[in-house]
Design a protein around this nucleic acid. Structure first.
Lengths: 194, 194, 194, 194
DNA sequence: GATGAATGAGCTTTCATTCAT
DNA sequence: GATGAATGAAAGCTCATTCAT
């Protein structure tokens, strides 16, 4: 990533500004200033304000998917895989607070702006979870009657809500590792045959 | 509720319009039209646009808390209590789609508008879950090493994410009852002593 | 003036509020509150907001004209008469600060609202001065070549500007009596040593 | 003044519109139209509507001070200096009627909007008069017991009130030169025969 | 490609006035 | 006569977007 890579500079700036102000209260001029480019320059790289958000979302989720898949494919134990997913998600949201805020916001809002936007990248991300469940069910490690479609939402939702609170109020009585362990334990112990 | 209860009429209208457009894209004039009052009348009952959202949130969450507490106090089995909470939450979000959307949105955004706003009503709601866990741990029904603070977030997040998807794309391969059962099963089987 | 004389109560209130906020920034509701009547009641006594200002102006200037004519007609010396006019004007503006502010404002603005409004009361007031000059010229006490039409404006302007500053910044190195004496001396004697 | 000097174009337009409608009844959109710029452009040069008025006032009074000081410093006779001040003031208000109206209005109102606004430019203007009086007193040309602080207010007030009427009703039985001469004579000589 | 001055549509909010009670 | 809740027109200001340089 060259320093003069305007596209990246704008995305980086947008993450900061969106996190600080929220999408609607963010000003193009503020993003431009943060990225050290002129207001008009932004429109050479993006169609409009909302396009920045969409692009940002897809690129960043893309990176996350790539990373977590890399980590998971080294494992074969479904329990471990879910633990890795959980820990990776929480660590990421902790490390990149600004990004975390933007992703959470955008997840709940994007459909409000563009009715037609199908968030395929997000679906791809949570499908990493359902794939793990599927695999675990095939080997008999997980109960067959658990619905992977419900599980993936529930698992992601549990992690994301935990991360949301983390971002909002940064002091906690437990560590990220504990939280990740607890959540994957809840779900794994809940899904293994009795 | 008298037909001339302008406060309620405006809240009802705001739920519809906020759900349809999102908070920022919602227009006061549209809420006014939907409520069959003049634009200015809204400002006799609310300080500003954001005050409508806050009031709406607190009043509606307040009702939900009242209802779920009423349902739960009839039960003594912690497993049943969590099942009831899960089912009640999902049913509510299903029945009142507009409200569901607004609550989810607002949960992720309110802190962006008013830094000082502490969402105590929401905290009260999720604390219903941690109270159940606490009680279950005291009687030995739940594992003592489960952190109620993590559990409540995870449980609520799982439910809310499930509801979110439900609201977005209304066709599903499973029923609300199945989803509620599955989610509480995941969590209860995950939290009971092995 | 009975205490229940709503007309007077509203005028009194309007003087206070107009002085405090200026005509445009004054709110009917504030005048109503100050007068201890309902907003709507004001419209039983006045046609509109501007009508309050006009009525106020004419009534109050009317009183002032009555008073100053009473004082002056006891005198026969033109110099004394001008001194009385000057002192009376400054004392009045000092005693009734709120009224002073409103009259000064209104004098410069009324023509902006209602093009047709001819401020006959004000003309009547300054004509008290030109009448004195006329009389003084007839008896040879004043120079014949002085234009009463210019004199009356200049004399009133001198007094009113002095009063204006008095109202704005209340601390001074000279008294009202001194100022009134000086101004009438300037106009009668001039400033050069005799 | 380049044709594209937007700042000046807006000030010029504002003088016209403020004179025509008064400050409060003036519309930003009307000023914009008069200046041949977009509404939003005004806000690139001024913070708000009131800022236009303040800036206008200070710039224009600034020019007037510059001009009158230039004229006066060529003279050494205090009587002549006051005559020049009087004539210059009246001529200016006659030539620039719109500006005259705005300055008179603003003088009576600015303190109503911004309590903290100290009108230093105006003070500088009237202090030109008190400086003349001071000088005349030092050389013995003027009476030592005349208060320059009272004189400057009175002299300015006399001129301004005369100009005000001139602007309101443009037909007169006397010329500007006559009026200026009379007023400076009143103040220097007084009105009684010598 | 890069700039940033200019644009102007659009919205929240205010408040004088009305009128049913 | 008195009230005050309701009205709705109206305007200051913002800011995403454009385009001449």
């Amino acid at each position: 990533m060259r320093t003069s890579d305007k596209h990246s500079k704008i995305i980086e700036a947008a993450i900061k500004v969106f996190a600080r102000k929220g999408f609607f209260n963010a000003r193009i001029s503020e993003i431009a200033k943060e990225a050290h480019v002129a207001d008009g320059t932004i429109y050479l790289y993006f169609n409009n304000k909302y396009d920045i958000l969409i692009t940002l979302f897809e690129e960043e989720i893309g990176k996350i998917i790539y990373q977590v898949k890399l980590l998971i494919e080294k494992e074969s134990d479904p329990r471990k895989m879910l633990e890795i997913f959980a820990l990776h998600h929480l660590q990421l949201m902790e490390e990149k607070r600004d990004l975390a805020e933007v992703l959470q916001m955008e997840l709940r809002q994007s459909n409000k702006f563009m009715k037609e936007y199908r968030n395929t990248k997000f679906i791809e991300y949570v499908d990493v979870v359902s794939a793990i469940v599927h695999k675990g069910q095939e080997t008999g490690y997980f109960r067959k009657d658990a619905l992977p479609g419900v599980f993936k939402r529930a698992f992601f939702g549990a992690l994301d809500e935990t991360a949301r609170l983390w971002v909002l109020s940064p002091e906690h009585s437990y560590t990220i590792e504990e939280a990740a362990q607890q959540i994957s334990d809840f779900f794994v112990d809940g899904i293994i045959p009795r």
